[in-house]
Design a protein around this nucleic acid. Structure first.
Length: 476
RNA sequence: GUCCCCAUCGUCUAGCGGUCUAGGACAUCUGCCUUUCACGCAGAAAACACGGGUUCGAGUCCCGUUGGGGACGCCA
């Protein structure tokens, strides 16, 4: 049977890390089996659902590279079908109208809790006749759930779990206003959409018992469940907006590559032996539910950083340039010229070794295209002491005589100068580095000279020699 | 409170009764490399929550304790 999975977020906020991983697992499972990955927007809560959230969700998934098959299904649009199924159950005697008011229910729960019992609906309307109903109360429809025996789910991650039916109550299927509850909508939609595998967060495990009862009452096949452990925040509690969870888009803005995020998320709760760096193609090939662990994981930014650094090193230079260009242009307050781009591309190999995020990459690249009085950090300023500038003055004379400029030619010239003057290499290299980059944390010296070219190198040296090194850098 | 789940280095994890004096990765620390910062390389420190069983033998199976998490809505 062909595999059909689905990701079913509710559009009440952004796509957070936990949701992103759930989506990834569903996507991977479907792709691995050559199946279908569906997207369903669970917008039956009209008060909380927003179009902005829908957009954020789609954007987040797109950024992550998780493409869904077909058009997204909006659950609210299917409410008539949901209601019809609920009424069908009433006709079949498997569900009933309940006229208990919200206040009554709240009271019931509080009393139960106070007496140390489970806060469950006491089934007061299960066997009463609707003509006993209060006149102006609109009823809800509740499932007539089994009161004896037990319900067992076979979960691909959690194993076999059994719950006594006495622990469950007659949950609401259709609200008083005629709209479906989550329980009803999920079950009907999963059935109608042909979903074969329900892969979702651990927080839904308890729902699976109720949904199993509903699947059975409706006469549907029960899909295979796989409840994956939740991702916790640094404090060990469930990720939520209040617990520092940020949207997946936010990681884009913070300079993370989607492939790094995918790799990171994959390893959070899933493993394949000792493998750590796993390309998306490899992940599709390897992914299986058997590799999903049972315990919750904590989100660790440091590990994401290291993965991101890895994927930056692997990334195509042109792509990296495109990714950092907007940030660079903002920093520069002007657009990048063709010459700028050529220069950045030439220096990219050295630059990307030094960045954990695209933000760092952009900041580290800035000096290549910055305009001339370069910002100087403290250490660089120190290297450009009077002594240092004197050395640069002498060196400039030598470098201006280099005809065929290249990284190698520049190096040969500088080394020749050092030897001729009988100086220590650092005494020349440090001021040169400072003059050319404005900082003491930069790519390799001769690489920079090669990328900058003769004219620009000399211009930067001259500016430094003349003390036109004006701009103060905020970074010490 | 009730029910459900989980429990290996700080973190993510390998481990599916003996090959575990417990492996990998991130982070940390130390060296090497080096003109800087990184990268890279080499190395170090670091864990089977506790208590009972079962077994010739338990990180691996069972029970309990403790700890953590989740769920108990006319939210999803």
């Amino acid at each position: 049977m062909a595999v059909v999975t689905r990701f079913a977020p509710s559009p009440t906020g952004f796509l957070h890390i936990g949701g992103a991983r759930t989506a990834l697992f569903n996507w991977l499972y479907a792709r691995h089996h050559g199946g279908t990955f569906l997207l369903r927007i669970e917008d039956t809560d009209r008060a909380r659902s927003t179009q902005e959230a829908v957009d954020a969700l789609l954007h987040g998934l797109t950024w992550l590279g998780l493409d869904w098959d077909g058009e997204p299904v909006f659950q609210f649009s299917r409410q008539e079908r949901h209601a019809a199924e609920a009424h069908r159950l009433v006709e079949e005697g498997k569900a009933y109208f309940c006229f208990a008011s919200p206040d009554e229910l709240t009271e019931m729960r509080e009393k139960a809790l106070a007496e140390g019992r489970s806060p469950k609906y006491d089934r007061r309307w299960r066997d009463r006749h609707p003509d006993e109903a209060p006149k102006d109360t609109k009823p809800v429809i509740r499932l007539k759930a089994p009161t004896e025996g037990a319900t067992t789910i076979v979960d691909r991650v959690q194993g076999e779990i059994t719950v006594q039916n006495s622990e469950l109550d007659d949950f609401v299927l259709l609200r008083a206003d005629g709209t479906p509850t989550y329980m009803l909508a999920v079950v009907v939609d999963d059935h109608d959409m042909g979903v074969t595998h329900v892969v979702r967060g651990d927080d839904h495990t308890n729902n699976a018992f109720r949904q199993t009862q509903l699947f059975q009452a409706l006469g549907y096949d029960v899909p295979t469940f796989a409840h994956v452990p939740l991702i916790h925040g640094q404090d060990g509690a469930k990720m939520s907006k209040r617990h520092g969870a940020i949207g997946v888009d936010e990681y884009d803005r913070l300079g993370y590559l989607p492939e790094a995020m995918r790799n990171y998320l994959l390893r959070l709760g899933w493993s394949h032996g000792d493998d750590e760096i796993i390309s998306t193609d490899q992940a599709i090939d390897w992914f299986d539910l058997d590799g999903v662990g049972k315990s919750a994981a904590r989100f660790d930014l440091a590990k994401l950083d290291s993965l991101n650094a890895h994927y930056i090193k692997e990334a195509d230079n042109g792509r990296l340039l495109d990714l950092i260009a907007p940030r660079l242009e903002r920093l520069l307050s002007r657009s990048l010229t063709a010459a700028d781009k050529t220069r950045l591309l030439a220096g990219m190999d050295g630059l990307k070794q030094r960045a954990k995020t695209l933000i760092e990459l952009a900041e580290g690249s800035l000096f290549y295209v910055d305009s001339l009085p370069l910002p100087l950090d403290k250490k660089a300023a120190k290297a450009l002491s009077e002594e240092g500038r004197k050395v640069l003055g002498a060196l400039a004379g030598v470098l201006s005589g280099v005809d065929a400029w290249s990284e190698e030619a520049a190096e040969a010239a500088v080394r020749g100068f050092v030897e001729a003057e009988g100086m220590k290499f650092g005494a020349v290299a440090q001021p040169l580095r400072a003059a050319v980059s404005g900082t003491m944390a930069s790519p390799a010296l001769f690489e920079m000279l090669g990328v900058l070219g003769k004219e620009e190198t000399l211009a930067r040296m001259t500016a430094a020699i003349e003390g036109r090194i004006g701009r103060e850098s905020p970074a010490a």
